[in-house]
């Protein structure tokens, strides 16, 4: 029973991952390629500038797999693995929770998927949005990684707390009042959270980097225009740049917008597919199981949902 439910969740996730891969091939990869082109050009300019100024030149990232691999089987692996994992987690969440809500299995699956979409992706994304290649400083990856995972964990906890609060309040107040109060409480908590966590541009390593070519004080790590930050002219590739003169533009705002928009749509696609497919598979599975057992037992009245986790079998 449990294994077959989990397999259905993971299977729904795998289907969602395949759809996400198709979506990514059509919409994300052209944008990713533009971002990588920008990055290569930028890295070349930075290397030349730093060399000309006698500064240290940052090493290139590794190139283990070709872009052809990364943009096909590579992105497919990641999207399908992520989606299947989320589908499996959704199935586990369903198995743990189903005894606590008197609602149709499909509806519970949809609610849990919405919870996953908001907690795992959208709420963290509001504070730390998805970035294409070229955005993100190598020397801050540890802090950025921690901050992102803190956002994910805190978003999941805050959302869950809001749901528990709403259910508690619903015993005393009307459903509308309970939902409004807990929604306000959630927004306050979430607002405090994103207010307390630092903007990436304010990380000390980024503040310290502002005296280097291509870095400037900014709220994010989006590549700033490269200007001649020296007080003397500098000659690179036969061209002389005066102090303050632009050498290479900042990251294209339209490319960034497109990447983030497609990233958001991609997650909507993943979670919606998981919700619909898993919900449908689950109800078919339960209906088949229910028919076999129908004559074995009479309907028992459903007890009121409790706050304590009911052991699942």
């Amino acid at each position: 029973m449990e294994i077959r439910t989990i397999l259905r969740g993971a299977g729904a996730g795998a289907i969602a991952g395949v759809l996400a891969f198709v979506f990514a091939r059509i919409f994300a990869e052209p944008v990713i390629n533009k971002a990588i082109d920008y990055e290569s050009g930028r890295d070349d300019v930075l290397a030349a500038l730093n060399k000309a100024a006698g500064r240290t030149v940052a090493p290139d990232g590794p190139e283990i797999f070709s872009r052809g691999i990364q943009s096909t089987v590579g992105i497919a692996t990641g999207l399908i693995a992520f989606s299947a994992a989320m589908g499996a987690l959704l199935a586990v969440a369903y198995l743990v929770m189903h005894g606590r809500f008197r609602i149709r299995p499909r509806a519970l699956v949809w609610m849990l998927a919405a919870y996953g979409f908001f907690g795992v992706f959208l709420l963290p994304y509001v504070k730390y949005p998805a970035n294409p290649p070229a955005i993100g400083h190598t020397f801050t990856i540890v802090q950025r990684g921690h901050l992102y995972l803190v956002m994910v964990a805190a978003s999941l906890i805050l959302l869950a707390a809001a749901v528990v609060l709403a259910r508690r309040l619903a015993r005393r107040y009307t459903m509308t009042t309970a939902v409004v109060i807990s929604a306000v409480a959630f927004l306050v908590g979430y607002g405090v959270l994103i207010g307390l966590l630092p903007s990436l541009g304010d990380l000390s390593a980024n503040v310290a980097a502002t005296n280097q070519f291509g870095y400037a004080r900014a709220a994010t790590e989006t590549p700033q225009p490269i200007v001649n930050i020296l007080s003397t002219p500098i000659t690179v590739g036969g061209v002389t740049y005066q102090p303050g003169q632009l050498v290479y533009p900042g990251f294209d705002a339209d490319v960034l917008w497109k990447f983030r928009w497609y990233s958001l749509l991609n997650q909507v696609l993943i979670w919606t597919t998981i919700a619909l497919v898993f919900g449908a598979l689950l109800e078919r599975f339960l209906a088949a199981g229910g028919r076999q057992k129908k004559n074995k037992r009479a309907e028992t009245p459903t007890p009121a949902p409790t706050e304590e986790p009911v052991p699942t079998a």
Binding site: I64, G74, G78, F82, P129, A130, N131, G136, Q267
Partner: peptide
């Protein structure tokens, strides 16, 4: 962080999806 040494093989393989799914990278 890295569990099995910093070979970057997994990172590079799933690289595009890591960016697209919203994880910090690069």
């Amino acid at each position: 962080t890295s569990l099995f040494g910093k070979t970057m093989v997994i990172h590079e393989w799933v690289h595009d999806s890591r960016h697209f799914l919203g994880f910090p990278c690069h």
